[in-house]
Amino acid sequence: MKNTEASSFLPLTHTTFYTLIALEHPLHGYGIMQKVEHVSAGDVKIGPGTLYSALSKLEKQKLIKKVDGDSGDRRKLYTLTGLGQDVIRLEYQRLSHLVQVGKDVIKRMEDN
């Protein structure tokens, strides 16, 4: 089952989730850092050590892959794999569920 495989990566860390969603379109390392900072409105700044280890791990797990590009550039472009897209979808469902459950509880606390 494809979904069972994807679900084994859950839950994702902050860094992993942001890195994956940043790769909606192919980007190189620094592009990911900038995009994450942008989509999180400056809230999340990924350090280079953290990014490098996230990229090598995600590539090994086949959630992302390198794009064949200009081999002269030492900066490599990364993109999501099908598995990576499945993982984003499942994590989104998991988070939505958490938000919904939390919302219900907060509403009840306010009603009391």
């Binding site: 860390t13 902050h14 860094t15 999340v44 700044k45 990924i46 350090g47 050590g49 953290t50 280890s53």
Partner: peptide, 15 residues
């Protein structure tokens, strides 16, 4: 630049 090369505990632990 970020003051640290690691921005989360998980990757620092990995080092």
């Amino acid at each position: 630049a970020a003051p640290d090369i690691y921005s989360d505990q998980a990757s620092k632990i990995q080092k």
